[in-house]
Design a protein around this nucleic acid. Structure first.
Lengths: 144, 144
DNA sequence: TATTGTTATACTCTATAACTATA
DNA sequence: TATAGTTATAGAGTATAACAATA
């Protein structure tokens, strides 16, 4: 197996910054539409995959466990998630989406899918930047 | 001028998410090394380009003006920035880097340049994903 | 009248340390 | 002893509303 080709990191990072800036902005707006913070929306999105222990959620979001306690507290108070005791380890609490939580998580996902399908927030200039980057990678690759 | 080629948005977004996650993590660590939060580090980075009014800073970071007041207060208390009256509009205060603020901003930039040059935080798997994406774009392009 | 910046207020996120109940 | 989760605490980011100074 040959090594993967190198790319222009500076250009890639600039592109990433612009694109994910738009993505993050859209996610924040999508969550706010359901009266949620971005962190709360992210937890619901993670839980769409299935129940998760408090510790696992904290690891996924790279924050302290004590922090996750507060976030889940607020979600639980609004009836979007519930804590369930683990059968195998009595120390563990599994966080599960309620029916209402599923509805909200799906609403966020639907809004984000629109973003993913369109790259609507990218300006023509940014779209050209993307193309320039890809073109350059192609040229570098074929010239080697 | 022909239109720019389309790319697989879902794959691109996944790649962006992983890559900018690494970038954001590195920036947070770089700022923390100087005992700064990510927001504070971002303001110093913006000010490397030159002085900026409070309102302009708030717009750049897409937060409320009242929020920027607190952030700049903390930076000023540590001697990293100063507020200067505008000559043309007496309502405006321009925020300027102090010598120490420049030193800290440069230290963050140096650490981030190392990240930019390496993409070190990307796993081999993610590097392969990047290559796969680029390869697919190349094939679609030449096949059309 | 509109804009710049601040203050007051309230909520959320965040980490650290200390605690409990399990394992 | 180590781990899962919580509580207490404190600092920082965030937005809203009201305000003074200026345009």
């Amino acid at each position: 197996m040959t090594g993967t080709p190198r790319v222009d990191t500076a250009q890639l990072m600039e592109l990433l910054s612009v694109s994910l800036g738009a993505y993050h902005g859209d996610f924040t707006v999508a969550a706010a539409t359901e009266n949620l913070t971005a962190s709360q929306g992210k937890v619901l999105t993670v839980l769409r995959r299935g129940p998760a222990a408090m510790r696992a959620l904290a690891d996924t979001m790279t924050c302290d466990a004590s922090n996750m306690t507060g976030i889940v507290d607020r979600l639980e108070k609004r009836g979007l998630v519930s804590r369930e005791a683990s059968a195998s380890d009595r120390r563990v609490k599994n966080v599960v989406l309620t029916a209402e939580g599923e509805r909200v998580a799906d609403a966020i996902r639907t809004k984000m899918r629109a973003t993913r399908d369109g790259l609507d927030k990218l300006s023509d200039q940014d779209r050209d930047r993307l193309y320039t980057l890809l073109e350059r990678v192609f040229i570098d690759q074929t010239a080697s």
